[in-house]
């Protein structure tokens, strides 16, 4: 599903340049659930953003579902993000003046799906994350866990090939984190490829594979026995 080779990325800060990713080789199979770990500043988010086409690499190749992602104009990149990728952020990134349903329906709007269809699909996904009854609530009326579940529903609504989550539980307490991870496991079990950036070992262990980043390179990449969440 994902295939990257010799990926480099530097940030220009004034006159100097910060080399963040120093040659990443990495691939992800269909249906995998990968945790990306590493200390703060190791480049986890940078990698995920490049995978999510929110940012670009300096050198190296990136194939997403056998399509070479290179030198795309913004319009094409937007279409790829829309069709292939779903995002979940630590800070939720819901649009504050739209209610839960409208937030979930937004990617479908950019897919050109009809209004009725959008509402129906969005409601389905809200139901899937257990928030059907909260459809007309604004983000400000939802708890952190609920917001993140709305965000996950939104990421899933466009039926992407890959779900990318940057510290999805970073702003949540441990119980709520567990709920969110249970949801992620459920989605993964349905066949979706998922990458989760996290600091926490507990969270990482709920995935099927852990990739360890350090100083811009992968220092460890191992399959693990998944800690399946039973009942929350």
């Amino acid at each position: 599903m994902i295939e990257i080779k010799n990926l480099h990325k530097s940030y220009e800060i004034g006159a100097s340049s910060l080399h963040v990713l120093k040659g990443i080789d990495f691939s992800v199979e269909d249906g995998d659930l990968v945790a990306i770990m590493g200390s703060s500043g190791s480049g986890k988010s940078t990698l995920l953003n490049i995978l999510g086409m929110l940012d670009t690499s300096d050198t190296g190749t990136y194939d997403l579902d056998k399509i070479r992602i290179a030198d795309m104009d913004e319009k094409k990149a937007a279409n790829y993000r829309n069709k292939f990728l779903g995002f979940v952020f630590q800070s939720f990134n819901l649009i504050n003046y739209k209610n839960a349903l409208e937030n979930v329906a937004l990617p479908l709007y950019y897919q050109g799906v009809s209004r009725k269809e959008r509402q129906k699909t969005a409601l389905n996904f809200l139901d899937k994350v257990g928030l059907k009854d909260w459809a007309d609530h604004l983000p400000s009326e939802l708890s952190g866990g609920q917001k993140q579940r709305v965000a996950i529903a939104r990421a899933l609504a466009s039926n992407p090939k890959v779900l990318l989550a940057d510290e999805p539980t970073g702003a949540l307490d441990s119980k709520t984190s567990l709920e969110v991870m249970a949801l992620i496991q459920k989605i993964n079990n349905e066949g979706k490829t998922i990458l989760v950036v996290t600091h926490e070992h507990d969270i990482a262990k709920m995935c099927k594979r852990i990739v360890h980043l350090k100083d811009g390179v992968i220092v460890e990449d191992k399959k693990i026995k998944q800690n399946v969440i039973k009942n929350v």
């Binding site: 999510g52 929110l54 913004e74 319009k75 937007a78 279409n79 993000r81 829309n82 069709k83 995002f87 990134n93 819901l94 649009i95 504050n96 937004l106 990617p107 950019y110 897919q111 939104r154 466009s158």
Partner: peptide, 16 residues
């Protein structure tokens, strides 16, 4: 800016 960033992450093209 943040909102427009979200929209673009969700697939809004620059034209849109």
């Amino acid at each position: 800016t943040n909102e427009l960033g979200i929209r673009r992450a969700l697939g809004a093209t620059p034209g849109e």
